[in-house]
Computed example of a mutant assay.
Amino acid sequence: MDLPRSFTVRESSHRLCNPFTSEKLVTLGQAISPSPDTRVLDLACGKGEMLCTWARDHGVSGTGVDISTVFLDAARARASALNVADQVGFVHADASGYVADHPVGIAACVGATWIGAGVAGTVELLRRSLLPGGMMLIGEPFWRREPQNQETVEGCRMVAKDDLLPLPELLERFGALDCDVVEMVLADQDSWDRYAAAQWLNIRRWLDANPDDELADEMRAELLAAPVRHARYQREYLGWGVFVLMNR
């Protein structure tokens, strides 16, 4: 049980495995200002940057769950580097079925709502771990501009236009799930550039070091196509944000 190697290649230098900058993560933490006694569950936590930095900055504690052994190794190293290893722990597991042993004040899934087969299922999964009055954090893409043709949809790595909603409709969707949206911090085009462009350098460096690897042809093809695809489609049409929800 692990992520395909292509993920760890393209995101090898990333601390945040989504189009959020460190500054925006700080903004999100300041916006919700968790108290030091808050316990956090972060499903599909990636390299654990949110959990580790919030443990340092806000004194929270908690658990991150991810399927990637490579990412979890990075998360544990980050916790040690920030001197918060006694506050946070990481579990190698399929986050799609993970429920906290004890309810938490913040339950998060930032950029991986496929663990619940979409937003609705992910909200229901997070609810199973949440204390009354707690907060859910959902990281989710949306249409920044509505695509006018199927070529644009596929250029954004979607199958159909209905795979995503425009921002107002996404907020309405949260409301239909009996949630109040109480905060949001959105990525911008520069955030997307930092996330996407760093992948190109990671791929190029990996190709230079591993020219005969069985994955090399696939990664070379991705590097050839990715910059233009990002500039033509993803940068213009895809939005992304972290939405803070509370049960009504």
Rank of each mutant, 00 (worst) to 15 (best):
T21I: 10
A160R: 15
G89D: 14
D162M: 06
A231Q: 13
E49I: 05
D2P: 04
F90V: 13
V123L: 09
Y233H: 14
G97F: 03
T53R: 10
W143A: 07
M246C: 12
E214K: 10
G139H: 08
L223M: 05
D162H: 11
T21L: 11
Q148C: 06
T152V: 14
E169Y: 03
C109F: 06
P132Y: 07
R157H: 07
C17H: 05
G241I: 01
L28I: 07
V99Y: 04
M246Y: 00
V185W: 03
Q148R: 11
M136A: 05
E172M: 02
D163S: 13
A95H: 09
N18Y: 07
N18H: 11
D188G: 08
A55L: 07
G239A: 03
R15N: 12
K47R: 14
D180S: 13
V99I: 15
D180C: 03
L126V: 09
R220M: 05
G118P: 04
S6L: 11
A196I: 07
T152N: 05
S61H: 15
R128V: 02
A107T: 10
Q199T: 09
V26L: 13
D73E: 15
P103G: 08
W200R: 00
V181T: 15
L3V: 12
V60Y: 03
G133F: 10
R229T: 14
G29Q: 03
D163R: 07
S33T: 02
Q189F: 02
I203F: 01
A226T: 00
S96E: 06
A95Y: 01
L3R: 01
G97L: 00
A197E: 06
Q199S: 15
I203D: 00
R229N: 10
G241H: 09
A209E: 12
G134E: 06
T27Q: 14
S191M: 01
H58T: 00
F243M: 04
V84G: 04
W54S: 10
V99K: 11
N83W: 05
G62I: 14
A216C: 04
V88D: 13
N247D: 11
D42G: 14
L177D: 08
T122N: 08
S68L: 03
C156N: 13
A100M: 09
T152R: 04
W114T: 08
L224T: 12
W54D: 09
R128K: 15
A81W: 00
P166V: 07
L131D: 08
L164Y: 13
D94L: 06
G134N: 14
R15Y: 13
M219G: 02
Y237L: 13
S129T: 04
R145N: 10
D213V: 08
A77G: 10
A95T: 01
L16V: 14
D217Q: 13
S13E: 05
G134R: 14
T122D: 11
D178I: 02
Q148L: 07
P147A: 09
D162Q: 08
G97D: 03
V123P: 04
